[in-house]
Design a protein around this nucleic acid. Structure first.
Lengths: 207, 207
DNA sequence: GTCTATATGGCGATAGAC
DNA sequence: GTCTATCGCCATATAGAC
């Protein structure tokens, strides 16, 4: 896993070519393979086939397997945030805004199987690739946390003693629900309608 | 990954020998290796070395790599539940009981690095081993959910319209907190004291 | 730049000695 | 039952032709 590099290795890619069509084509193939098999289970042969190029071409665009993996994760983390949260500024009456926001978020997370596979992989590899896990926190989790916190803080009529803690609770409830129902395949074992979770949350907040 | 078995393969182990000292010794070595490297990254050679036996001995106790992995996960899921939840029947004044329960649970989860590694692995492999993920739901998540639900339900003075949803919210807040701070190494990026989360939760519930 | 072909090594699994 | 030795395969990574 950890490997010696020539001194002064240039971050992880060949820099000048990161955004060529071929590079994107390879990354696209790599996404399929890594999401399906995980880091260790993904082979550079499969990536090459999925991308429609030869294995040597993969190595000419990315330094090695680890570099390809890191480029892949960084790319996905950044392109994910846009879709999870619309660019809505979060304004309006709390009960309605929260209700819409939470159900939209839940729907997005449960429907999007690529998102599920991505989260699985990042969590699974978070012990061996801590920087990638942190990138996920910075680019996906933190922005959502800050948006919700800001909204809650700007509504003092909610009487929340700690809006940031509340924001964490909201995110936790949603993400954990998706984790149990979808990622861990628990929907038959511990069934619960999405609406119950959302209403339960809103009740607690507005009560 | 999926492999053909002789017809009538006996579940996954050699049954009569599951609880021999050698089997436990092998499982102990396997735990170290699988938790450190994940399923695909773990090799039977490493397991044999970690267990202090030869590779052939590993194969004489477990049918193959997949069988060993499944035995390992089942063993860990079951031995975990005891420790996460003391056998306390959850009685007493809500504010105190909840406060103690939540902080004890958080402490256990954040401190126990083996628990973190185990969750990482189960989630990471949940796409390729759905039955193992479900075992985790049945033996670890469901009992906790039911204990909390039962406690909340038995305290109608809390005025909770949906104690089961509330139970989910509590678990979600705690588990997600641990996931962000510890598993994803986010404690420097999104810092928050445990007490703030717990107090935030209790405020919402008792409010 | 991209290919085919290959080197080098580790992997899962088993045979056969004891 | 447990070991050592080995088989056959697939992995990462690169050399060299075009």
């Amino acid at each position: 896993m950890v490997r010696i590099r020539r001194a002064k290795a240039k971050s992880q890619e060949k820099e000048s070519e990161v955004n060529t069509i071929k590079s994107q084509q390879i990354l696209q193939g790599a996404i399929q393979v890594f999401l399906a098999h995980g880091y260790a289970g993904a082979s550079m042969d499969k990536v090459a086939v999925a991308a429609g190029v030869s294995k040597a071409t993969v190595y000419s665009h990315f330094q090695d397997k680890e570099g390809l993996f890191k480029a892949l994760v960084q790319k996905m983390t950044q392109q994910r945030f846009k879709s999870v949260f619309g660019d809505q500024p979060l304004k309006g009456e709390p009960k309605i805004v929260l209700s819409k926001l939470l159900s939209a978020g839940l729907e997005k997370m449960t429907e999007d199987s690529e998102y599920l596979a991505f989260k699985r992989m990042v969590i699974g590899e978070s012990g061996r690739f801590p920087e990638l896990a942190q990138a996920c926190v910075i680019y996906m989790i933190k922005p959502v946390f800050e948006a919700i916190s800001q909204y809650l803080t700007s509504h003092p009529e909610l009487n929340l003693p700690d809006p940031e803690a509340t924001s964490r609770i909201i995110m936790g409830a949603l993400v954990h629900y998706v984790m149990v129902q979808e990622m861990l395949h628990g929907s038959d074992i511990l069934p619960m309608e999405k609406e119950r979770l959302i209403n339960g949350l809103i009740d607690l907040i507005l009560k």
